[in-house]
Simulated scan of single mutants.
Amino acid sequence: MPLETYLIYLMAVGVFFATPPDTSQLLIISNSIRHGLRRSLWTVLGDLSANTLQMTAAAFGLAAIIASSATAFAWIKWIGVAYLAWIGLQLMLSPEKEGEVNASASASRLRLYRQGFFTSMANPFAVVFFGALFPQFIDPAAPVLPQLVILGATYIIVDGTILVIWGWVGLRAASALQRFSGGLVNRVCGTLMIAAAVLLASKDMSPQK
């Protein structure tokens, strides 16, 4: 892969992330507020694991199958919407314990990983997005697998960095919320999850994240 092609790809990925937070980013903000950034890195790991599987699916041509099957596409999408809304409602309705902000031991690593993984996997737009993005930067005259590894690894690094930055934003928000009580933290985090569900529900069938 020529260096100029890679730099254009890197710029394209950067522009893609220069948007308001999406579903996974809202999740990491919420988890960082409640559990701290360090523990919420398990959420980031879950998200990136799902992305890796989605890239693999795209590489095997499953992106076209998902994009062409409106029923499967809709089912994946609405399961994701329901999952995010369920997390949000749980948070909004659960009583807030004293010192819960940044209570790093209040959720298991597996639970945080699972939230990140399923939130990302429940987004059918990701596979279609990767299936549309990668071919634009692959040289068919060169071995394809090394190019896919480079493109995929680059995306994972950029995505992971962006998620950690949003997690830091959540950590800063937690510092401000420490002055409040009466369930405000859970309401804020629950609202973020409901917003993520609405964001996913509002997406149409076009290939996007």
Rank of each mutant, 00 (worst) to 15 (best):
G99R: 12
A176S: 09
A141K: 14
L199I: 05
G183T: 11
I157H: 10
A63Y: 02
G61T: 09
G152D: 06
Q90M: 07
Q54F: 02
V164M: 11
V149M: 15
R187D: 11
L171D: 08
E4V: 10
W86F: 12
H35I: 00
M205I: 09
G190I: 01
L84T: 01
A64N: 10
G116I: 02
Y83M: 14
R109I: 06
A59P: 06
L37S: 05
I33W: 01
V149Q: 09
A132F: 07
A59E: 04
T5M: 13
A176N: 07
F130P: 01
A107D: 01
G61M: 14
I165G: 13
Q25P: 04
G131V: 06
P124K: 04
I65V: 08
G182M: 06
G88E: 00
M121T: 15
A107L: 12
W75N: 02
K77A: 03
L27T: 14
S94C: 11
A70I: 06
E4S: 14
V101D: 06
T52S: 14
C189E: 07
I8Q: 12
S106D: 13
K77I: 02
V127M: 07
I76R: 01
A105T: 12
S68N: 13
R179N: 12
S69A: 09
S175I: 04
L84R: 01
I138N: 00
S49D: 03
R179F: 10
Y155A: 11
A132N: 13
D22S: 09
G167M: 11
I157K: 04
L7N: 10
Y113N: 06
A174F: 00
R109P: 08
A141E: 14
Q54Y: 09
E4D: 08
A18P: 07
G14E: 03
W166F: 08
S106R: 11
G190Q: 01
A173W: 11
L199H: 06
G183R: 07
K97G: 13
C189Q: 05
A103G: 06
S68G: 14
A196W: 02
Q208L: 15
Y9P: 00
A57S: 15
E4Q: 13
M55A: 12
R38Y: 12
V127A: 13
D204W: 14
Q115A: 12
P207V: 08
F137L: 00
T52W: 09
G131E: 07
V81A: 03
Q54W: 02
L151P: 00
P207D: 15
I138P: 00
T161W: 07
S40M: 13
V158N: 03
T23I: 04
R111E: 06
D159I: 03
M55E: 06
S202P: 04
A132E: 08
C189I: 09
L133G: 05
G46R: 01
V13F: 02
S181Y: 08
A72P: 01
